[in-house]
């Protein structure tokens, strides 16, 4: 990611390929981790890795890192709505 440009110019071939390599490595890692029994935290590890991967996709491939501030802030809204919705649903499911 050292290739990162500033402003609104899009990243180049090299950045994309580096991002892709990182994504492939992370996929390998997430599969490898399941071979080790990490017990209850395995889902957290899986989701954490998935989130790093989707962060790469968002930031590099989808140019979110290079967009104006509106896009970054707006992106938080659906994430927030989803997270809170799931949390409120679990307030029911968890304590039922």
């Amino acid at each position: 990611m050292e290739q990162r440009n500033t402003g609104h110019t899009a990243p180049g071939f090299k950045t994309y390929i580096i991002a892709w390599i990182a994504l492939v490595i992370l996929t390998a890692v997430t599969i490898a981790v399941t071979k080790i029994d990490t017990g209850a935290i395995s889902i957290l590890v899986a989701l954490l890795i998935a989130s790093v991967k989707s962060g790469l996709i968002l930031y590099i491939f989808m140019h979110l890192g290079y967009e104006r501030r509106f896009f970054k802030l707006a992106f938080l809204l659906p994430v927030l709505v989803f997270a809170l919705s799931i949390w409120f649903t679990f307030l029911d499911v968890w304590y039922r």
Binding site: V81, L84, S85, F88, L91, D92, V93, W94, Y95, R96
Partner: peptide
């Protein structure tokens, strides 16, 4: 308004915790 939906479900058998919060 996004997070008050449970008040439509007070008699459906959802948990008491969520009822109070909703």
């Amino acid at each position: 308004g996004f997070f008050v939906w449970g008040h439509h479900m007070f008699t459906s058998g959802i948990s008491d915790t969520s009822k109070v919060i909703f």
